[in-house]
Design a protein around this nucleic acid. Structure first.
Lengths: 399, 399
DNA sequence: GGTAGCGTTGAATCGTTGA
DNA sequence: ATCAACGATTCAACGCTAC
């Protein structure tokens, strides 16, 4: 039972990618801007590529991916002798040179894959990476050094963490995710209203409380052993994608493992690219993803946010007769008053200007949103201009 | 009322340091092991030294401190002004001490003070550092490079964080503390049982829920302005000291500020050394600490965790699989119907919003409690969302 | 004397679009 | 590229005032 399981029907629903109309899976799309540069034209969408992730990333076209989700290894598989996430394998090696070289190896690996990811990210793309205290500080520092712009660090509070058996430390009950834009000026995606709407109309905080991946969701082999040691819960990936990507976006995971990123992407109408070194994991991921039934688009499509709604000139309200030239507008407490002019400006004493300018002037503030400041008198009481604007927008949508 | 305030009596209670029997304050003790080495014999105990912390640290004898608590500058890198939706100005941390010209500068500064702290730490000593995503990753990486051995990262979940006013990110609702031993083989102090006893006999987790330092506890000047922009709550320091130090231990704070570390140390029968560059902060700290009445050791137990009913986002029900994305919700009489979306919002016709907003919309009312309005169809009949929320809360309480 | 209501505030990397 | 206009945006705790 998880966020991807549909409860009421078993009918497969083939989703359409909203922006292109193409089927979601197994059909590479072209990256048109790259043609002129003579670069590879196609992205390996909705596929799992087996091999070293840095090498694979370097074969992908630049600026072609909307979002990266990465769950990198704690210890370096390539180098061999790095310290493990738990301290048991690390004997008290007090050799400073050895310590430095171990961390240096991990840092070099981290720098390589982060830089390669940054190259394939679109200018407005973003990256998520998850880790624990063993590695996340090194990852975070390198990410800043490479020019990524940190947006939030997110704490995944585990509902059911493993206790600390020896009683020598606090229960390690969380992991840390870093959300960073490709650069400081990237216009990253964030579905603020959707997150707030799913959280009792309160802003979503940086601490998320979610259970571990267990039970049916956890992939097991024939012997009943878990296929992957660190499979992440689908709910975690779903929250990441719902908050920081759009339907149809390309989401790349350089450490694909058993494919949680791909499974959630498919369910939520996103495209994915999975890179995985281990063919056993890759095979398990492919099988898992093939069995996923995408959710109906209306269950995940992006709700319109105020920022994306069509602009309505105040003059349209005058023209539509929703407000009258010569009529007065006031603020909520009727402390300020101005007159509507036929050209869609307001007049306050000798001053004439937009609803925003005059609102700012009335309050002595540098700026003001006139739509949410001014009201008109109606039989039922004061009515906000923003409500009247909503009526215009409804008419526009119906037309 | 802060954690140090005694509620029932105003009588001063002079504590005794259990292991030595010496009065807690203003009497430097000898550091016997240092005599033979010809080093300074006395530690400036229970004092605030004004000056650069690295220079001051280098004048202290090595291996003489049990615990370091450090709240270094965060290097916030703020841009222009930030205003609340009501146009009031956010009082930002724009002090000179938080300005660094580059990451390299900040790293050099961090390496210097961390190395100096490591020198004065006893072999079995430990260090705590607090920071935000702006600096903590760099601090953590450098700390590892210097040979500190990480024990936990601790998340301070703020009960009342500042919201994200522009709706562009998740509410930055936590800060991170790193707890590290001087080295991998250090026999650090940890009062496992005490922490567990203060936590309903459950292991203390790595995520701590505590309010900001506000109200009476916050130091104000004559004009009513806060003395220090980033004063930490006493409860946070108390939990640190109770878990990771013994009565009589020497606790050094290289960024003493207005002396929360000293105030809590005095109250809990620890010795302190405070280093602070700004004489104004140092003077405020001295005055503050002088007014502290030490608690009798038996009077203090671990800060009680907040016991109010945890708020549950509707999204959690989707994530837990208690309701399905795409499933319908109805009111008691099945007159209204809406669809659950993967992000925890509802959809009713073209409208998308929280369970409350959409409930209000369905009924044409200004407001609605979605928890007690909407139901889902279950084999046994309609089930109220509020009942499902109860199940989630039961799980959370059991965790 | 309670309490409802209003104002203030907290370590913050907090726009977008079109001319 | 720069500039100006538009217009979107907050939660919990505390303290003071009015009733």
């Amino acid at each position: 039972m998880g966020i991807l399981r549909t409860g009421t029907t078993s009918a497969a629903v083939r989703i359409q990618v909203p922006r292109t109309g193409r089927p979601a899976l197994q059909s590479p799309i072209k990256a048109p801007r790259l043609e002129a540069a003579g670069l590879p034209l196609e992205l390996p969408l909705d596929q799992v590529l087996v091999g070293d992730c840095v090498a694979a990333l370097e074969r992908l076209p630049p600026a072609s991916v909307d979002l990266v989700f990465a769950d990198p290894p704690y210890n370096l598989q390539l180098g061999g002798d790095l310290r493990r996430p738990d301290d048991s394998l690390v004997d008290a090696v007090d050799d400073d040179w050895d310590k430095f070289s171990s961390f240096a190896d991990y840092d070099a690996f981290t720098r390589a894959w982060l830089a390669a990811c940054r190259r394939v990210l679109k200018p407005d793309g973003a990256l998520w990476v998850i880790g624990s205290y063993h590695n996340i500080f090194r990852v975070g520092a390198i990410l800043q050094d490479l020019g990524f712009w940190m947006l939030n660090d997110i704490v995944w509070r585990k509902a059911n963490p493993m206790p600390n058996f020896r009683g020598r430390r606090f229960t390690n009950a969380h992991e840390t995710l870093i959300w960073a834009a490709r650069g400081a000026s990237s216009k990253y995606t964030f579905h603020y209203e959707a997150l707030k709407g799913g959280n009792d109309d309160l802003q979503m905080r940086s601490d998320w409380y979610l259970p571990l991946c267990t039970g049916e969701e956890r992939l097991k082999d024939e012997a009943g052993a878990k296929v992957h040691p660190t499979q992440k819960p689908e709910a975690l990936l779903a929250r990441v994608m719902l908050s920081a990507s759009n339907p149809g976006d390309v989401i790349l995971d350089p450490f694909f493992g058993t494919g949680t990123t791909g499974a959630v992407a498919k369910a939520l109408g996103r495209r994915f690219i999975g890179l995985e070194r281990d063919p056993v994991y890759a095979a398990a991921a492919r099988k898992r993803i093939a069995a996923i039934e995408p959710l109906p688009p209306e269950a995940y499509s992006t709700a319109p946010s105020k920022r994306s709604e069509p602009r309505v000139p105040f003059l349209s309200l005058v023209e539509a007769g929703l407000v009258k030239a010569g009529e007065s507008v006031t603020d909520e407490k009727r402390r300020h008053k101005a007159t509507i002019r036929a050209d869609g400006t307001l007049m306050l004493g000798p001053a004439v200007g937009s609803i925003h300018k005059v609102g700012a002037l009335a309050q002595g503030l540098p700026s003001c949103n006139g739509w949410t400041f001014w009201h008109v008198e109606r039989p039922a009481g004061l009515m906000l201009l923003d409500v009247l604007r909503g009526e215009i927008r409804a008419q526009m949508a119906a037309a």
